[in-house]
């Protein structure tokens, strides 16, 4: 399987894959500390899409994808993920971390 190079592509296709067959699709994260490598995989055992990186900034993007999949999987494939892309989370965490940052 070829790795997908574009992150947005990867997100879009992985969500599509999950929605097409929620019961079979799984999302796997593999982290290898010794080599500083991170591989993400989404597969339904027919199709497999992967993304790999060694960049810390991609780990931040992954956090959003994690949230998308947690929401989709815990709430069901029809759950609304338009708000999940980090906004909700950031707003929820902002008051704790950044005191008086907004006002």
């Amino acid at each position: 399987m070829v790795y997908i190079t574009s992150w947005d592509d990867f997100v879009e296709r992985s969500v599509q894959l999950f929605r097409a067959d929620p019961e079979k699709t799984r999302y796997v994260m593999k982290y290898r500390h010794s080599e500083g490598k991170l591989v993400l995989k989404v597969t339904d055992d027919n199709e497999c899409i992967k993304f790999r990186t060694d960049q810390a900034q991609d780990a931040k993007k992954m956090e959003k994808l994690n949230n998308i999949f947690f929401t989709l999987m815990a709430r069901g494939p029809d759950a609304d993920i338009s708000e999940v892309g980090g906004k909700e989370q950031m707003e929820a965490q902002a008051p704790k971390k950044g005191r008086g940052r907004k006002q």
Partner: peptide, 12 residues
């Protein structure tokens, strides 16, 4: 941290 990997899988 020295060697090996960790896998985390999410599934519906």
């Amino acid at each position: 941290t020295e060697r090996g990997s960790v896998w985390v899988t999410l599934k519906h």
